[in-house]
Nucleic acid binder design. Sequence first.
DNA 1: GCTTGACTTGACTGACCGGTCAACTATACT
DNA 2: AGTATAGTTGACCGGTCAGTCAAGTCAAGC
Lengths: 200, 200
Amino acid sequence: MAMQSDTYTRILEAARDLIYASSYAEVGVQAICQKAQVKKGSFYYFFTSKQELTLAVIDNYYEGFKDSVIREAFSAALSPTERFQKLFELTITRQEQIYAQTGHVLGCPFGNLATEMATSDEVIRTKLDSLFTRLQRLIRDTLQEAVERGEMEDIDVAATAEAMFAYFEGLMILAKTRNDPGVLRKLLPATARIRIPKTH
Amino acid sequence: MAMQSDTYTRILEAARDLIYASSYAEVGVQAICQKAQVKKGSFYYFFTSKQELTLAVIDNYYEGFKDSVIREAFSAALSPTERFQKLFELTITRQEQIYAQTGHVLGCPFGNLATEMATSDEVIRTKLDSLFTRLQRLIRDTLQEAVERGEMEDIDVAATAEAMFAYFEGLMILAKTRNDPGVLRKLLPATARIRIPKTH
DNA sequence: GCTTGACTTGACTGACCGGTCAACTATACT
DNA sequence: AGTATAGTTGACCGGTCAGTCAAGTCAAGC
């Protein structure tokens, strides 16, 4: 699978950026090819369908996310509290930067795709669902560590992770709809204070 | 503007249902006309564009929401706490019912549209933004009443309303992506426990 | 009976959709 | 030099997109 040209990457990145900036349905293969400076024939040499490309785009997003946010924020060198703080700071500055560049708050690429495609493409929905689960696990493990360190009361870590994730995604939608990253500055740090107590 | 036929309404309701079940971009004027049993020419007699229709659809959604959820849950007859409980219960049963009927959790119609169109249609974004603000005001007023009654500590009611709204929307996305209304049963009631303290 | 205005119809436009394909070129290995 | 492999190209497919329009129906008001 060793590539001899960078066409695959160019298509992938063009698609990623275009879809993130608008949506799956609004971005056509033609537009992707134009941005990637590639002919449509080449597109279908590397991808069998637009759906397959989208799956690759999701992977690409996640890789980028892993190599930046996850690596920086969820580092063993940081305490659980510091990890959350770092996650918020990275998220806020990222959205602020995108806003400065494009004039739009684009929100969470996964949340955007999930909202758009969950009911119309089961393959993509499933992929995003397990991605969401993975991210919630990351939060849950951090919470678990905080509890074990005695830095947090004995909450329902799985449920709290879900709730934190939901709040995070909801704020992204709010910021996107208001087109104002200030919403995140003000309210994202409150994610860390969400608690779902254990049910006995 | 007195209508002599129900065509307008049929188009509006067909569009509302189709868009809610998938998305704005995925639903064509043709499909709407087919569902409404109307020829495309008639569509453009009542609506000048698909965008205008979408604005009407948003209004229609909101009217329905006002006449059911808002009227039932945000009644003066209920205490602030009861209002939230009622809101959650109505939301959960609604999504459960939709899931039973369609096999899909469809989430929040406003959140869905906002996520899809916020970056590509400024008119629709603005409309949804003010709608969001209106809904947050409803929550804020309820919180304010709870504070004044001494049933709640002296929190930042506006910020808390925003946070509650965000959490609500985020949970909808989670339930939609997992295609499981159980998420709402488990985590939606926790909305009422969110607090953003006053900054001094 | 005639006019008016409300609505309906179906054919049409040009652009774009996702996707296909046979022919072509450039490179790498033998 | 020959051949296989990887990648590229542009023309093409049937279908759908949002939107247009001239011609028609029909019921109410005069």
